[in-house]
Design a protein around this nucleic acid. Structure first.
Length: 517
RNA sequence: GGCUCAUUGGUCAAGUGGUUAAGAUGUGGCAUUCUCAGUGCUGAGACAGGGGUUCGACUCCCCUAUGAGCUGCCA
């Protein structure tokens, strides 16, 4: 069996959609699981949608996720060029298109858009005929279209008008420089069948298939054509792509047959949807890898999570490093039904990764978020340690530690706590008693403070909670904090801790005065 | 509208004719801890519906329903 070769073939149109990232992941895993090669091919045949800088995003994403390609524009493996616009310039696609014309599998089409629009029309609900052109949604943001074609009742296929042009007419048109496209000639009868590794055998009536355009009037190939040609030329063994391509797969099959090429193994992946079970869109706010990074997720967790969207190891294990995924991944276990991108579970998984992260890397990632909140001269690493086991994303840090920077304005009712058997009254007297003890010593380490406070609690014979709840509340002003009173005071230091305790005493005293008891 | 695909707890999912239908996440409770988080224990929660085939169907077939994707000189 020949060496496994897979390819990731994104078009540089912006951010890296998580669906595409998962496709890249699966392609990488399939190749690496078998010791094969993973290639990168840039599909920039749509000049209108090309976005400056998008290729950099692709390179960068593959790099930081660890999906390292063996061949690509920057790594020649002998099958280049790896950028379709360059391949186009080299005349590759036109050459193969002409070959198809020779054999009658394709033909020139000189139809104008106007003529085509009379063919393809839209009948709206009320029966009005509208020009289809007007109804074409903004495809640059197709994902956000909720029902761009909701009213489409009927679309008529291309009528093969130009298939019947005589050789002379074609020559004359070409000579006259009339714009043309090259279309695939699909038989009107019979069926086309193909096999997909995930979905099994699928057959479609040829009558359903449109004569799709292979070469556009600007001379560029369409995705449909370039993909087939390049996959063959680059000896791709497993073609992995999203489920949205399943319907067009028969056309690709016809192309392979037309060329007499062997078909690759198709692996169509289930769709990734949002909570509403719709294709993940920009509106959901987390459709791209970059969105996720901005939301405080770590790359390993993202990779791990999306690997599990449509695939399962069959074991009870869910946390996998990329290396483990390479070892475990078997594309035969990819499942068919669409998967909802569940942020809740991603958050959980991200938390797991943060907890397991070694200190050095964790500090590197967390410190920037801490610096956003803390400007005082505090031990930021200690603060980071406190939240490492408590956050799910780095964005959680802010709300958790803001009280270190500035004492929040809190209500004294917070001192009422049934379980701790404490209220404002009790808290006030406890704080008043603890204050001088805390004034009188200088070792503000966790152990030092613990020694003093525990000594006090023992002496008074009260429960830990009763002795600690008022203190923690006083120094934090928060219902809940990462870590306890000792840890907080250790970070705050003697001066600030006592300042806050005095503040609390004042606050409680004033309240007492106000209520007159 | 047509075509294609899908349908196991809220979500991700295991399961390939005989199971008490895993596990995870989320969610409820209890315990522990000065709070939170964590940890431990524990609870609730699923085979879309209807017909077949079969001794037996979550598993196979058909129909229905629902959902999704495609239906572009976009990928």
């Amino acid at each position: 069996m020949s060496k496994v070769r897979t390819r990731y073939a994104p078009s540089p149109t912006g951010r890296m959609h998580v669906g595409n990232l998962r496709t890249a992941l699966y392609e990488y895993l399939i190749a690496k699981h078998e010791g094969g090669d993973f290639l990168l091919r840039i599909e920039d045949t749509d000049q209108e949608r090309f976005v400056e800088g998008a290729t950099d995003i692709i390179y960068h994403t593959l790099k930081i996720t660890g999906l390292i390609h063996d061949e690509g524009p920057d790594k020649d493996g002998g099958y280049g060029p790896y950028i379709q616009s360059e391949r186009q310039a080299a005349g590759i696609y036109m050459k193969y298109a002409r070959q198809l014309i020779e054999t009658g599998e394709a033909y020139y089409c000189f139809c104008t858009k106007e003529r085509l629009s009379t063919l393809k029309c839209v009948v709206s609900e009320d029966g009005d005929m509208t020009d289809k052109e007007e109804d074409i949604p903004d495809y640059s943001d197709l994902n956000d279209q909720q029902s761009g074609r909701g009213e489409v009742k009927e679309i008529i296929k291309y009528d093969k008008h130009c298939l019947h042009l005589s050789k002379e007419e074609i020559e004359a048109n070409l000579a006259a420089g009339i714009p043309y496209v090259i279309r695939q000639n699909i038989p009107t009868e019979g069926t086309t069948a193909f096999h997909d590794a995930v979905y099994g055998d699928i057959a479609v009536d040829n009558a359903e298939l449109d004569d799709m355009i292979l070469i556009k009037s600007d001379g560029f190939p369409t995705y449909n054509f370039a993909n087939v040609v390049d996959d063959h030329l680059m000896k791709i063994t497993h073609v992995v792509r999203g489920n949205e391509y399943l319907s067009s797969a028969p056309k690709y099959t016809r192309l392979y047959h037309a060329f007499g090429w062997e078909e690759p193994i198709y692996v169509h992946c289930p769709l990734i949807t949002n909570e509403e079970h719709k294709k993940l869109s920009k509106r959901s706010g987390h459709s791209s890898f970059e969105d996720l990074l901005e939301q405080g997720f770590v790359t390993e967790a993202i990779v791990n999570f999306i690997a599990l969207l449509g695939w399962s190891s069959g074991t009870n294990e869910e946390i996998f490093s990329l290396e483990e995924l390479v070892r475990e991944f078997d594309y035969h276990h990819i499942n068919k039904s669409p998967a909802v991108f569940d942020m809740k579970k991603l958050k959980w998984m991200n938390g797991e990764y943060i907890k397991r992260m070694d200190k050095e890397r964790y500090y590197e990632l967390a410190l920037p978020y801490i610096r956003e909140v803390i400007h005082k001269d505090l031990d930021l690493k200690k603060i980071a340690d406190l939240v490492q086991t408590r956050i799910e994303t780095f964005l959680d840090i802010k709300d958790m530690i803001d009280f270190f920077e500035e004492m929040p304005d809190y209500d004294t009712s917070m001192y009422n706590h049934k379980k701790m058997k404490t209220d404002e009254e009790i808290s006030l007297s406890i704080l008043k008693e603890q204050q001088p003890l805390l004034e009188a010593f200088d070792d503000y380490s966790i152990e030092g403070i613990e020694g003093v406070i525990m000594g006090y609690i023992k002496e008074k014979g009260i429960k830990n909670g009763m002795g600690l709840w008022p203190l923690r509340t006083a120094v934090s002003g928060k219902q809940s904090t990462p870590g306890g009173a000792y840890e907080i005071m250790d970070i705050l230091g003697k001066e600030e801790s006592l300042r806050r305790i005095r503040l609390a005493i004042d606050k409680l005293s004033n309240r007492k005065a106000a209520y007159g008891n």
